[in-house]
Every structure is written in structure tokens, then in C-alpha cells.
Nucleic acid binder design. Sequence first.
DNA 1: CTGTTAGCGCGTTCAT
DNA 2: ATGAACGCGCTAACAG
Lengths: 343, 343
Amino acid sequence: MATIKDVAQRAGVAPSTVSYVLSGSRKISEDTRIAVRAAVEELGYHPRASARTLRSARSHVLALAVPRVPGKYRGTDGTFAIDISDAARGHGYDVVLITDLAGVAAMRRVAGSGMADAVVLMAVEEHDARAAALREMGFPAALLGRSEDAPGLPWVDLDWEAAVALALRETVAAGHRRIVFLSSAEHEISARRGYALHGLAGARLATRESTADIRIVPSSGEPEKLGRALREALAARPAPTALVVQHLILLPHLLDEIAAAGLRVPEDLAVVLVGSFPDDVGGRPLPRIELPVTEMSAAVVRLAVGAVGTDGSVPSGEQPPHRLIAPRMATGSAIRPPSEPSS
Amino acid sequence: MATIKDVAQRAGVAPSTVSYVLSGSRKISEDTRIAVRAAVEELGYHPRASARTLRSARSHVLALAVPRVPGKYRGTDGTFAIDISDAARGHGYDVVLITDLAGVAAMRRVAGSGMADAVVLMAVEEHDARAAALREMGFPAALLGRSEDAPGLPWVDLDWEAAVALALRETVAAGHRRIVFLSSAEHEISARRGYALHGLAGARLATRESTADIRIVPSSGEPEKLGRALREALAARPAPTALVVQHLILLPHLLDEIAAAGLRVPEDLAVVLVGSFPDDVGGRPLPRIELPVTEMSAAVVRLAVGAVGTDGSVPSGEQPPHRLIAPRMATGSAIRPPSEPSS
DNA sequence: CTGTTAGCGCGTTCAT
DNA sequence: ATGAACGCGCTAACAG
């Protein structure tokens, strides 16, 4: 494997000259620059990452801490991982996956070994021990998903409150007067997950704003319970004409229940999704607000890269940098008005 | 940040002694070992990855080359990424994501920079330029998904032929006599994708073995075309009682079509899946053969780690190491027999 | 100004 | 159990 010395020899210059040519951190005469570039090309030289990192104390690597909730669908995390990797490359960074169940120990390993310059924490839970550990170590980090309990760390999130409010507002605007909002699952709410709480807030906001009858129904992680709650909500008379759903994991099950109740979508019941995954091919093209995965990924990478070289802390009393992404309805997915004019 | 010298000083020994204690590659007296360990603990020492890698020429990192087919659902790749990362950690490796669209250039970067010890290539296409480049560079690699066109590289795959044959056999065993097999999409077949061809072979095998009427219908990536093909197949008389599906991307759409045709699943039509993703919560618990993601991930990591330190080549004429994983029906998903006894 | 020399960063490993 | 060389690239100081 070629080293900088080989290149120098071939180009008839000193190793340092090669380095300067490559980094561009100093003016080098046209001739030697060309000679060096030629030698690099011919030898297929590539600087050794470890040597560069050792010297510069910069690995140009971002660690992505993926939560490992057993039984949780891993596809969503993976989608973010890929988009984050893409975004990172745009800043000259690579991404290593940290999937250890041993959260805090893994963070110590990352920080201690210098294998990465910053950490991106996905789907932060309340009281996230990893976030606390990183703060304590003064290691640069950024959060994907807001966390009220990890203060002082930069974060990115979809504005769930605005998203739910927007979905409901649009549903009302389409003419619906009796709407069911299926919120996050009860356990998510009691665990005080950011998206769950903010989503509820959005629903309340929309309810206050509008004269339409908006009924908030908490979802459930258990298909049976969810089915019961849904059937009950749909059985109300006069019947609701639209269903706005934030809890999407069990969506197929949900649609089955609706079909089993003899309702057609969207003729009998308009279904509107909040926070659905893009590119989730195979689903029907329901009207929806998609989770802006690419935008969130780009933003969180920007924050993480921006934190590199700092000690990750923010002057107390000041807001850490953050980005709350405004929701928007996916294009090409109009909400169907109710079939029979409502009261 | 603590270095090995700090630890040595605190323990009252030489740096090399600390190194030997940590690596265990040499016998060290009980006392000093304890002293060193204590110093490590107190200082929270962690060896600098870059220094270690520079000296030992081993990064203990696996590069995972993720294909970036625009518009393709990225969740599946992500699921593999996470499982591969888990498996790698079990071998003392970390995983860096390589999502560059520029395939070959990215492989050169990985090999040239020494940032990884081996590459895992996902979902290899025919004539994969990345695989060829790696072979040519003599860089260790392993393939996730068989590729007839990347000879000499270790690979792992589900035995798709056996999988489709098994699904059909079980469907027959449940009493079905008229079965439709919805194969991979036409474009996948003409692109000679391994899973598509082997799946077809399995269908032919089962057809030969059995006296049941098995009709092979190619799927399509376009929902309309798929719907037409399906409606036509289901309209045959006497009507088929079971549908075995390998092309799962449009499954929800498929089930919609079935429902629209007035058929209930599984009462009127048993639906059996081949190669579905595990943990894909929300889908109905249909009888199925799941893609053994975790098993495949573990196997491909083992192959990649095993190739580290070699030049990645296999004595010509010899088979590279590989693993063809036997399919099995997911537990708890019996295939429902046909309602009316078939002829 | 342009190019060279020398020392550094840190852990591993051989020879003493 | 230790001292010292080594892996490789970066960059401050220096020479031409």
C-alpha cells in the first residue's frame, strides 16, 4: 500500500510537499503540484485514515447511536441511518453504527477511543442515560427527536404539534365535521415521549380553533385494544367521516378493522396520516404528512458537525441550537370530502 | 484525555507493560497486572483507536456497502444494517455505512484509506462493479445475497428455490389443489436477480413434484399491471384457493385488490408469503417464510471477518466459502385449508 | 516564496 | 519488565 513517502519519491520531492499539495494549505508551484498529482494518480495513493486521525485528532466519523428496543420495527431506524450517512458524506464524514444495547458503555467507548468526532442520538427517550453521559463527558452530540430531558444538547424534530394541527385543519377544510384523531399509544403518552405529547397538544389546539367535532382517541400497542377503541369511536352516531392517525405502526391492522366494519376508504371514511414514512411503497396513497426523514437527517448532521471541536456544552441559560421542522401535507393527496353533507 | 503513558506512570511501570497487560499477549506478574488495571480504571483510560490501527494495520471496522437504488424502500436495507452491526460487535468489529452512489470510487476510498478491514456488500446486482473492484484490489469482502456474477467472493443467501418450493409444498399439504404463485416482478427476472431466478426454479420444482394445479404469474412493479395480472389469475375457473407471494413490496396493494374482488383472506383465499421481513409489525400474521435477516447477518459477518487478513482471493477452481440458508415456515402460521373440498 | 527537515500523535512489538 | 523503533501523515520551523 502506497504511503506519502512513495509518492514523494516518485515525484522527486519531500513528503511534506506532497502533504501540502494534497491539503492545499500552502501555495505550491504549478510544476511540482502537477508532478505530485501525477504520482498520486499513478500509485493510486490514498492517505491512511488512522495516521491522519492520530495526528489531527479528527476522525471525520460520526457515530450514530441507534436505539435497540426489542421487538420494535427496525426498518424505520435503518431508513434514518441511510439518510444520515448520505448527509454526513456531504460534509466529508462517515457514519459508524452504534447498536449496542449497553447504551452508556458504548458512548464511553466511542468518546474514549476517539473513533468518532460526534454522536448523533436517535429517538431519545426521556431520561436518556446516553445523552446524560455524553454531556457529562463533554462529547459533541446532536439529538434526532426532541428531548425535554436532555437539555443543552442540539436537537432536530418535526413539529408534531403543528403537524397534527395541520392535518386536522385540512380535514376540516375538506368539509369534515366529525373527526376522530387517533393519537399515539397510551404507553407512549405516559412515557412522555415528545412526539406523543406534542401531537396531543396539536389536537387540542385544532379542537379549540374549530367548531368541528374532533374526538381524541388514544391508540394502543396491542392490536385488540386498538381495534376495540377504534370500533367504539366509529360507532358513534352521527358517524365520524374522517380519521386522522398519528400512531402508524399498526396501520394495516387499522385499515383491516375499518374494512371489517364495512367502511370503504375514503368513500365512507377519509383516513389522514401524520408522520408516515416516505418511500413506504405498497401502502395506499393516503393523504398524509410525511416524516421529513431526509430533511431531519440533513439537519441533525449539520448540528453534529457543527458541534465537533466544541465541548458540546452551551452557556447555561442559553438555548442549544435546534431545528423544528414545519409539517406539510404530501403532494398529490387531497383529503376526500364527506359523502353526505354533514349537519 | 488519558494516554498509555499516563496509565504507566500512575501504575509505576513502562508503557509497553501496560500494553501487554491490556492485550494479554504476554504473561505479566499478578501484582503489576492489578496495579495496571487499577490505573486504567481510575483514569478511565481507553486506547486511541487511530493509534492502535496505525500500528497494527487492523481497524476492527467492517464497511457495509448499501445499495442506493433511487425510490427503493430503504427500510429493508436498514434492518440488515442494524443486524449486521450487532453481529459485528460480537466479533469486536464496528460497522461504517457506505452509502455513496459512486460505488467503485467509494470502494477505492475504503480500501485505500484503511478505514475498514473488510467490506460487506449488500444486495449485489448482476455485474456489480463494486464487487469486481474489490476483487481486483484484493480487498476482503463478503456478499449478502448470492451473485452469479461475482465469482470467487464469499456469499450468504436464503435458499430461494427451496423456500418457494417449501411454501408451495405446504400449501398443497394443507389441501389446496389450485394455487397461484406470484413470482418476482418481470424486471427483476429479466435483470437476472438471483432471488427471482431461484424462486422461479423452486416453483417449477414444486409444480413437477405435485399434481396440484400451480399457476406461475409474474408480478410487476407497477400497481396497475400487478392488479390486472392478479385479477386475471383469480378469475380462472375453477377458482384458485391459495396465493403464494414472493413479490412483497406491493403486498398491501395486493390485499386491497383481493378484498376488492370480494374475497376474504384466508376464508376464500389462503395467502402465503415467501421472504417477508420479520418484525414488520402491523401486517396481518399471514402464513409465511421469513427472510432470516439475523441469521444472514451473522453469517455474512462471519465470512467477512474470516476474510480479514487474506487478500480476499480463493484458489481458482475452488469454491469460495458460502452459506445457503434453509427456509422454514414461520411458527404459528398454519395455512388454512380450502373451504370447499376441491376436486 | 517554495521546498525541506524534524518532531509529534499513541499504542504495539522486538530485542535487550 | 523495559527502552526504543516503528507505523504514517501533519505542520511548525527553517533553508534556499
